[in-house]
């Protein structure tokens, strides 16, 4: 099963082969999960949404014509589900927005930095995380896919269902917003 191509597994899964679909899911579950985690900031929500995305994909597998890769297709389902979930959550009044601090900076404990530098870097990374979290949803989604997942504008555009130009524009705007917010922490640069 592990040696099979995605295309072959998709065909098998279309016939109702659960093992084949589980293998497809296994191949991209980490990337999907971490993207959803970056968007939701909550491990339970990310896990539930990833499960829901895989289930939706399984149920509508017959409509998947393999014009894109399975990976792009499942990613698109997962991201759309999550964006809708976040929009709903935002609308819900009185619900506390979960904001787990799930990121720490690798360099924060780096011995090559002096205590003052470490403290400054830690502060910058915390402020950066806050600033990213406060970006409007479409900007945050583009930023997450391009910066955290290393996607090209084209790949992100296919997943978000918009044009490459839109992604490019959102990245520019997102960076402008981050830069404005982080100015006091960016030093002389």
């Amino acid at each position: 099963m592990e040696d099979c191509s995605d295309g072959h597994l998709v065909e098998q899964a279309k016939q109702g082969d659960v093992e084949a679909f589980a293998e497809l899911a296994r191949r991209c579950q980490e990337k999907v999960y971490y993207t959803l985690l970056a968007l939701t900031k909550n491990q339970q929500d990310a896990s539930d949404l990833a499960q829901e995305a895989f289930m939706q994909a399984f149920k509508s597998l017959k409509s998947f014509k393999q014009r894109s890769s399975f990976y792009t297709w499942i990613y698109r389902i997962a991201v759309n589900l999550t964006l809708n979930f976040l929009k709903r959550r935002k609308r819900e009044e009185g619900r506390e927005v979960l904001n787990e601090s799930h990121s720490v900076n690798k360099e924060s404990e780096d011995p090559s930095f002096s205590p003052d530098e470490r403290s400054l870097k830690k502060e910058l990374s915390e402020k950066l995380q806050e600033a990213i979290d406060s970006l409007p949803l479409p900007y945050r989604a583009s930023f997450t896919l391009v910066v955290f997942q290393g996607m090209t504008h084209g790949q992100a555009a296919r997943i978000l269902g918009c044009s490459e130009n839109t992604v490019s524009w959102r990245m520019h705007k997102a960076r402008k917003m981050l830069q404005a917010r982080l100015k006091p922490y960016l030093g002389g640069g």
Partner: peptide, 21 residues
């Protein structure tokens, strides 16, 4: 100056460590 701050933000963002499960 703007280019330098964008580079810094990008480097910082890509070094944010994700939670390993």
């Amino acid at each position: 100056s703007y280019a330098a701050s964008l580079e810094k933000i990008h480097d910082e963002a890509t070094s944010l460590e994700r939670v390993e499960v």
